[in-house]
Amino acid sequence: MEFLQKKFLFSALVSILCFAAEVSSHNRFYTPPSLTPLTGSFPRVPIDRAFSKSFGASNIQYLINGSTATLALDKTSGSGLVSQGRYYYGFFSAAIKLPAGLSSGVVVAFYLSNADKFPHNHDEIDIELLGHDKRNDWVIQTNMYANGSVSTGREEKFYLWFDPTKQHHYYSILWNSYHTVFLVDNIPVREFIHSNSYPSIYPAKPMSVYATIWDGSEWATHGGKYPVNYKYAPFVVSFTEMELSGCIVSDPSETPSASSTCSKSSSPSSSPSSSDPVNGPEFSKLSQQQIAAMDWARRKLMFYSYCHDKPRFKVMPPECH
């Protein structure tokens, strides 16, 4: 009898510990540092005028006079939008509300790419939101590469400090000649500095902006270990409060010079400007407030960086040193 009691107590203790670990995975709801926001600094654009339907048109709906778009993934298709303009540097931001419930294998992306114009030599700057596994957690993965170097992608992964399915949160990219910064709710989570020591790895060709939802089961869940369960479809993501400000390039095969004419917004009503809207000194480096916030995010929430992946890289990429 005593043995059975001890066995029962041991089993109960294991269950409690497992439950605690599971709960802790859902309770990373930290209070982030406060800082001056970048979102709202640039004009918002109507999504139905700034974007075209890229794929899965029947799964895309425009709401609230075109200021909001919902994209769905179901058994038939995912869906996606592509900007009507191509940009050379700029600030790109969207408020996104992710699908609730079991979302393993679902990928929501807000990113820049020129793969359609440079299929073998393209650039990309990615924010990818991954329905990570069976715990209903979402993970944000950032990535970037230049000149088609997909095999040497520079991924970093973070947990979020909030539930991204309850309301809209801001996901933003600042890209200029100095650095690329990834921000979540205006908190910088990653900075990639443009260095003359390794210029070929920095995205430097005009890109379109994409907003998509798709089935990433094979890619995002350890080779399909946790595939999308279409029993819970459709998976619907909402995009709103879109900001696209940068140099609009008419010929994507040409890289404009610093003195070239660019438009401050993708909005058709915007007036042309002679300067890049993110080329000023306030965008050339992070403020001390932003540096402190980024340090907070990386210490508390980052759980993967390519710079720490020694099994993957026999020789670490140069910027990791």
Rank of each mutant, 00 (worst) to 15 (best):
P227K: 03
D126V: 01
Y202G: 02
T68Q: 00
F192N: 13
S58Q: 12
F92K: 07
S263P: 09
S172A: 12
Q290D: 14
F19I: 08
S269K: 11
P46S: 08
F239I: 01
Y159M: 03
F42Q: 03
S238F: 11
W219G: 13
F3T: 15
N121T: 02
D126K: 03
N27I: 10
S11C: 12
K134I: 13
H169T: 01
A220F: 08
F42R: 11
F92A: 00
F235S: 00
S208F: 12
A50D: 03
L183N: 12
L301I: 07
E124W: 06
S270W: 08
P206E: 00
Y232P: 02
T142W: 01
S253I: 04
S305H: 03
K225W: 15
S41F: 06
Y226K: 01
V209K: 00
T152E: 10
A69N: 04
G280F: 08
L81E: 02
T70K: 00
A20M: 04
S266A: 06
D309W: 09
K285V: 10
E282N: 11
R135Q: 15
D251H: 11
F3G: 12
N59H: 10
H169E: 00
A57L: 03
D251M: 05
M294D: 04
L4K: 08
T221I: 04
Q141L: 05
F158P: 01
C18L: 04
E191F: 00
S177C: 06
S245V: 03
Y226T: 03
P256R: 04
Y178V: 08
M294S: 08
L244N: 10
L9T: 05
M242E: 06
N229Q: 10
K53L: 13
L98M: 00
L81N: 06
A50K: 02
P203Y: 07
N121E: 09
D163N: 09
S270H: 14
P32K: 02
V108M: 03
S41L: 13
I291T: 14
G78A: 09
R86F: 14
Q289G: 13
S305D: 04
R299H: 09
A146K: 01
D276W: 04
H179Q: 15
R28A: 05
G78T: 00
F283Q: 06
